[in-house]
Amino acid sequence: MPVISLQNLKKSYALGDNTVHALRGVSLDIEEGEFVAITGPSGSGKSTMMHILGCLDRPTEGHYLLGGEDVSNLSRDALADIRNRQIGFVFQGFNLLPRTTAVENVEVPLLYSRPLLPAAERRQRALEALDSLGLSQRADHHPSQLSGGQQQRVAIARALVNKPSLILADEPTGNLDTKTSIEVMRLLQNLRESLGITIVLITHEPEIAAYGTRIIAVRDGEIVSDVANTPTPMEHVEEDQEQSEPALAAANA
């Protein structure tokens, strides 16, 4: 059973007197463990697709099955619960709460989990998530005290803390330099390999899309190509990360 199944999905907005058709009938299945890169120029509808995939928005027509459940017509609060339990978001601008420590940022999704975990357990899980991304030393740092790469890793830790089945990354490297971008992409690749998490990545950069196992191109609200891809190899990831880690630490010191 596919993790994600879009069936003739349409989305239109009223913009003034005109109706904008952002999605014009998209059908798509994504299997568990896939790393799908969705590419397309701005205005192609890829952002709308991301919003619907992320249960932030509802389609005008068609069906969206997430883990076999039709979520197309759920209430706001029901969608909030699905986002909380099943989807981890990684945003372009990191979207970390300012003046809030890394570990507290990672804890935020746990605050909205039902049933609510005890404070000690929330802290424990947040620290574990940070630790798995090599950030345990930075747990008490505020976002302003972290480098861009570190901030994005905190954001990824936040996306992982509730053990979701799907990670949605919306231009995760948009605010990062090339070197850090590669780092973050390898991290995502690594998550897929080790945890088997399905990842959907939205990007307009072909080099970033190349890290996926499948590349889908969207244009004018329709899928124009859907090809399997041999992801950019991860071979030298380990050494590179080892190199960058002290370098970042030094830069921050």
Partner: peptide, 16 residues
Amino acid sequence: TREIGLRLALGARMQD
């Protein structure tokens, strides 16, 4: 507003 959007995305219900 952005913080509210983030919290909503991370699963905050309206009552939260």
